[in-house]
Amino acid sequence: MIISVIAGLRRINRFIALLVGLALIACVALILIDISLRQLGISFGGSDEISGYVMAGIASWGVSYTLTELAHVRIDLIRVRLRPLGKAILDLIAIVALAGTAIVIAFEAWPVLQKTIAHHALANTSLATPLWIPQSIWFAGWVWFALSSSLLVLLTVVLMMKGDLRQADSLVGARTEMELEL
């Protein structure tokens, strides 16, 4: 049961990461079109503004994938010298700190969107983008990060209570950049 929840969460985040990656590719295409049109003396503009929104979306939606891939950079100088139980305790502290922060960010991201909606805020550009569109996508990403990380806290606690430290390590342990790469 726990294992299938973990696998499900990983699969969802991998799928999200792929969507985010495709948005990045769309942004590449948009920029190339913009450059080409500019060479022809036609102004499209706006690729600059849109790539900013895409960047905000990558950051807010990508962090959950990075989390379930154990890729947020951690300094594990002390951790690597500990026994499995010590490691598990540090991992629990880390994931609780992360989930707590994620919840605060999601909570504080809402007033940003809320003000935008209340003011009908438009970007001060010729596109005059209604800012609620990019900000809703951005806000939802942080909410998902808060949910994903809270779920990980829950699963880790359950696994630790069952004494399954190995499974807990594969869920919220630390990986070096290279272990992930290969």
Partner: peptide, 25 residues
């Protein structure tokens, strides 16, 4: 007219477009 002009703000950009210039950010 026909020039690429660095300017910011919607009114300035709208003005440039009305002149036949291009606003660049």
């Amino acid at each position: 007219k026909g020039k690429k002009v660095r300017g910011s703000g919607r009114m300035t950009t709208d003005f440039l477009e009305a002149l036949g210039a291009t606003g660049v950010n």
